[in-house]
Every structure is written in C-alpha cells, then in structure tokens.
Amino acid sequence: MKMSIKQLRAFLAVAHTLNFARASERLNLSQPALSLTIKNLEEVLGGSLLNRSTRKVTLTQAGEFFLPTARQLLADIDNAEETMRQRFTLQRGKVSVAAMPSFAANALPGALKVFRERYSHINVTVHDVVNEQVIEMVKEGRVEMGIVFEPAPGGQLRFTPLGCDRFIAIVSQNSPLADRQQLSWRELLTLDFITLQHPSAVRLMLEEQLARSGCKLEVAMESHQLMTVGRMVAGGLGASAVPALCQQQMQDLGVVCLPLHGPVIEKRIGVVYADKPLSTAAQVLLEMLKTSFHA
C-alpha cells in the first residue's frame, strides 16, 4: 500500500485546522471517513502523525517533521496537474518542426501566423533544413514533426499528405526563353542548368523523372541552397527548375517563372512524424497546415 493524494490532503487539512470537524467540512468528507483516511496514512508511513484527545488534536513529533514534506509533495502534484492542464488546453507548451526550405520560407509562415494568433503561449521552433535532414531529425526525435516531399513507402515514419507541388522553370529576364508561355524540359535544358547538389531530394527527383522520359540532366552549376540557385539564374548564369512553392520567392529575386512540361514533374508534400501520438500543440498545428496548404 502506498501513500495517496487523498491521504496527503486529509493530513494537511487536519494539520492546518487541528480540528477533525472543520477539516471534514473543508474536504467535504464525513468525520469517520476522514479518521479512516488518516489512520491508513499512518499505517503506510509506520507511525502516528496526530495526537487525538476529546479536547484537542496536535501533531506528533513525526507529524511536525512530515508536515513541510507533505506540503511540498502536494504543491508539486498540484503544479504538475496545472502544467499538464495548460499544455492540453494549449495555454503553454512548445512544438518543434523541421521543414524543407521551399516550404519553410513560403507556405509555413502563414500557418504559423494563424497558430500564434490563437495560441500565443505555445513556443514554436522551426528548423529550416534540406529534405533528407528533416527526415533524420524526426527519426532521431530532435523534432516532433517534419514537412517534406513524400518519402519512399516502408519507412519508420507516418506521413500525412498536405498536397502536391510541381516543378516550374526559372530563367533570367534576359533569357531568350523568358517571353514564352511555357517550356518543355528539352527547351529548358538547352540553357546551362543550375540545381542543388547531391544528395538533395530535389536533385534526385529531377534526375529520376527525366531519365524515365529519356532526358539526361546535364548540370553546369550546383549549390546547397535554392535561394542561391535563384540568384545565379537571376544573374544570367543559366536556368533551373524549382518547386512551385518557391515561385513568389524566385520572382522577388528577379527571375521569370514558367510552367514546365514534357514531363510534368510533381510530388506530394506532407508531414512526417514518429509512429506515436503527437502532442496537443503538434496535432493542432498539423490540422492548420492541412487547412492552409493548397498546392
């Protein structure tokens, strides 16, 4: 038999009032039930905590010793209950997210704005990392959820789709192809092609899809970041293909964005997380992402 919260509350009520009748009223408990609860606590601890007589109730030496400990235990329990209640009702807490750069810089801020407006006491940490590192961080438990292109089936993580994103062409404003309405891959690849370095999921996806269509991706320049790729294209060094999520970001850099076909390359984007329940904050953020993302 172990000490219970009910027993702690009973002991503290009697210790504060030194009167079983008033303690019973405070606890909304009958005097016989209160006496039995105190007796059970004393049996658990192995000795008397209270001196009882017909005239008064006092604390034994052991009771005096136990009183501050009992207060602290109950305070810790009450604090833990309140902390968890606030977390479950989203009055406090935190959620950590890793997202591939194209999503982190373009689609994620809008969802986070709505989330913060509703749950301003929830701390949100965003890790802006490449697709492969997002998956690695989720697997290692360093973040609760990640936003990536759909991984290959059979992995350790759960995947909730948000939508599809397709690749678009980006060329400089001075490019001979800049005035076209759309481009084929064969036309785009007549220009020096700039893309992300291996082992980028974007690079791998382009190579695999083009190979199936009989096109070989000849790369003239490489970079680690899509923003750098965009700046290189804007500077007239060549052309590239990027997720449509980046369109506004690329246009802000001064490039021309064009639909791309032959083949159309697209892939689902979604949230990955470990095969266990998400925290309340992460669940709410996931629902907001599903509502706000319309690629």
Score class of each variant (00 low, 15 high):
Ala80Met: 07
Thr58Glu: 15
Ser175Asp: 15
Leu196Ser: 04
Val264Arg: 14
Gly262Leu: 13
Val143Ser: 08
Arg92Met: 10
Glu42Gln: 09
Asn123Arg: 13
Asp128Ile: 13
Pro176Leu: 04
Ser172Asp: 15
Met137Asp: 12
Gly155Trp: 04
Ala169Thr: 05
Phe193Asp: 01
Ser213Lys: 06
Thr291Ala: 14
Asn28Val: 06
Glu222Ser: 15
Gly262Ile: 08
Ile147Pro: 07
Ala244Glu: 15
His198Val: 08
Asp165Gln: 11
Leu210Phe: 07
Ala239Val: 01
Val242Trp: 00
Val138Gly: 05
Val148Leu: 03
Leu289His: 08
Gln248Arg: 14
Gly270Asp: 08
Leu217Val: 09
Leu41Pro: 05
Arg268Thr: 14
His224Cys: 06
Thr54Lys: 14
Thr190Glu: 15
Val255Arg: 02
Ser223Ile: 09
Ile5Ser: 10
His121Asp: 14
Ser292Asn: 14
Leu36Glu: 15
Leu36Asp: 11
Phe66Asp: 05
Lys267Ile: 14
Val124Met: 07
Asn40Gln: 13
Pro32Gly: 07
Val114Tyr: 04
Gly238Pro: 02
Leu73Ala: 06
Leu289Thr: 01
Ile265Gly: 00
Asp78Tyr: 02
Leu49Lys: 04
Leu29Val: 12
Thr54Gln: 13
Arg87Leu: 11
Arg52Phe: 10
Leu286Val: 01
Leu12Met: 10
Pro263Cys: 04
Asp165Tyr: 00
Gln209Arg: 12
Ser213Asn: 13
Thr60Gln: 00
Leu73Trp: 03
Gly262Ser: 15
Ala70Thr: 00
Gln251Ala: 10
Arg158Trp: 06
Leu189Arg: 03
Gln197Pro: 00
Lys276Asn: 09
Pro277Ala: 03
Arg118Ile: 08
Leu59Arg: 05
Ile170Leu: 11
Gly155Cys: 09
Arg118Ala: 13
Thr190Arg: 03
Ala241Tyr: 00
Glu266Asn: 06
Pro161Gly: 05
Lys39Pro: 03
Gly254Lys: 02
Thr280Phe: 09
Arg180His: 12
Ala23Met: 01
Ala10Arg: 00
Thr195Asp: 10
Leu183Ser: 06
Cys215Tyr: 10
Asp179Gly: 02
Val57Lys: 02
Ser240Pro: 03
Ser35Asn: 14
Ala33Cys: 05
Ser175Phe: 09
Phe66Lys: 05
Gln133Asn: 11
Ala21Leu: 10
Leu162Arg: 01
Glu136Phe: 01
Val219Gln: 05
Ala282Gly: 11
Gln72Pro: 04
Leu226Ser: 14
Gly262Glu: 15
Gly110Tyr: 12
Glu136Arg: 10
Leu189Gln: 06
Leu50Ile: 13
Ser48His: 13
Cys246Pro: 01
Met250Tyr: 11
Met232Trp: 11
Asn40Met: 10
Leu45Met: 12
Leu27His: 00
Gly154Gln: 08
Ser30Arg: 07
Ala75Met: 01
Gly262Cys: 15
Ala274Ser: 14
Pro161Ile: 06
Arg203Gly: 04
Val126Phe: 02
Leu188Arg: 02
Gln61Thr: 14
Ser96Gly: 08
Leu34Pro: 06
Leu36Cys: 03
